[in-house]
C-alpha cells in the first residue's frame, strides 16, 4: 500500500518536474556571444583594487604580528602580543575605544531620531519644504575641517557664539567651556557631527516616507488610531529600510570622525576627544607600525561587529505587526 502511494506520487512529480527546468531555460533568451575583449574592461579597476586596497589590507594582518617600527629592515614576529597589548596594557587605546563607542551611540541615536523628525516635518514636496531641505542639507557638502573651525568658534569659552547668545538672553548660568570641559567635550563634538550630517540622512528618510501609500494612514485614521499608533504601526515599519541605511551610515561616519576631531581638537587630540581612528593615526605617527596595524584590525572588526548587532536589533523592533 504505502509503496504504491509513494510510487504514484513520485511518478506524478517526475511527470511534472522535467518540463519546469527546460521551460525556464527556454524562456531565457539565448544570450548573444560576448566579445572576449569585454573581459578586459574591468581589468584596470581590478588591478588597482588588488594592489592598492586588497593586498595592503591583507598585509595589515601580517604587520600586526610584528614589532616593526616602519623604517628599520629588521623586525620580529611577536605573535598576538600587539592585540594583547591593545586590550590589556594600553590605557590610551582603551580610552579611545570607550570614547568611540560613546560617541557612536550618542550620534547614532540623536542623528537617526533628529533626521527622521525633520523628514516627517518636510515630507511634502511643497515649495517651502524643498527650500528648507536644501538648507538643512547644506552643511554636508563642507569639509570636516571647515565644520570643525565653525564650531570651534561657536564653542569658544571667551568669545564664542554659544556663550554670547546665552549671555545676550540672560542665561549666563548655562554658559560653559564646552570643549574645555573634559567630561562633556565628546558630546559637544557629537552635536557638531549631527549638525554636519543630519540633513543628509533626512534626505534618505524623505525618500522612504514618500514611498508610503497615503491610503494606509487614511484607513488607520478611520479605525481611530491616534498619531503615535499610526507612527508605530505604519511609519516605523515602512521606513525600516531607510533606518537601516541611516543607522549603518551614521555608525561608519562616527567611527571615521577623524577629520572632524583633528580639526576641532588639533593633532594629536587631547585624551577626552581621542577616538579609534585618531589613536591609530597617532600610533602610526609614533612609528609603531606593527601596533598601529593591529589597532586597525581591531577597528575593522569593531565596525563589523557593531553593524551586525544593529541589524539584529533593528530587525527585532520593526518585525512586529
Amino acid at each position: 500500500m504505502s509503496v504504491n502511494i509513494g510510487g504514484t506520487s513520485s511518478v506524478a512529480k517526475a511527470d511534472k518536474s522535467p518540463p519546469t527546468p527546460s521551460n525556464r531555460n527556454g524562456r531565457r533568451r539565448s544570450p548573444t556571444r560576448i566579445n572576449p575583449v569585454l573581459y578586459l574592461f574591468p581589468l584596470p579597476a581590478v588591478v588597482l583594487t588588488m594592489f592598492f586596497m586588497v593586498l595592503p589590507t591583507l598585509q595589515a594582518f601580517q604587520y600586526a604580528l610584528t614589532d616593526w617600527n616602519g623604517f628599520s629592515a629588521a623586525f620580529n614576529y611577536v605573535g598576538l602580543d600587539n592585540f594583547v597589548r591593545a586590550f590589556t596594557n594600553d590605557s590610551l587605546f582603551a580610552n579611545a575605544l570607550t570614547n568611540n563607542l560613546k560617541f557612536m551611540l550618542v550620534v547614532v541615536i540623536a542623528q537617526t531620531a533628529f533626521s527622521l523628525m525633520l523628514a516627517l516635518l518636510l515630507t511634502k514636496n511643497s515649495r517651502s519644504s524643498v527650500a528648507l531641505r536644501a538648507i538643512f542639507f547644506f552643511p554636508t557638502i563642507l569639509s570636516s575641517v571647515s565644520v570643525a573651525f565653525i564650531w570651534k568658534f561657536i564653542y569658544d569659552p571667551n568669545f564664542g557664539l554659544a556663550n554670547s547668545v546665552l549671555g545676550g538672553i540672560g542665561l549666563e548660568g548655562l554658559q560653559g567651556s564646552y570643549l574645555g570641559n573634559d567630561a562633556q567635550a565628546l558630546y559637544w563634538v557629537a552635536v557638531t557631527q549631527v549638525w554636519f550630517h543630519a540633513g543628509q540622512m533626512m534626505v534618505v528618510y524623505v525618500a522612504g516616507l514618500q514611498a508610503i501609500p497615503r491610503e494606509l494612514y487614511e484607513a488607520a485614521e478611520m479605525d481611530g488610531a491616534n498619531k503615535w499608533e499610526r507612527f508605530k504601526t505604519i511609519t516605523w515599519p515602512f521606513v525600516a529600510p531607510a533606518t537601516a541605511i541611516v543607522v549603518a551610515y551614521t555608525t561608519i561616519q562616527s567611527f571615521k570622525a577623524f577629520d572632524l576631531i583633528l580639526g576641532i581638537a588639533g593633532n594629536p587630540p587631547k585624551q577626552s576627544l581621542d577616538i579609534l581612528s585618531t589613536r591609530i593615526y597617532s600610533t602610526f605617527a609614533n612609528s609603531d607600525f606593527g601596533y598601529a596595524a593591529a589597532q586597525s584590525i581591531i577597528f575593522m572588526a569593531m565596525i563589523a561587529l557593531v553593524t551586525w548587532l544593529q541589524r539584529r536589533l533593528l530587525r527585532l523592533t520593526t518585525k512586529g505587526e
Binding site: 595589515a60 571615521k256 577623524f258 581612528s277 602610526f284 577597528f299 575593522m300
Partner: peptide, 11 residues
C-alpha cells in the same frame, strides 16, 4: 567595507 584607516600603514 574597508575603512581607509584600516590599511593606512601598509599603504
Amino acid at each position: 567595507a574597508i575603512p581607509a584607516q584600516a590599511n593606512m600603514v601598509p599603504l
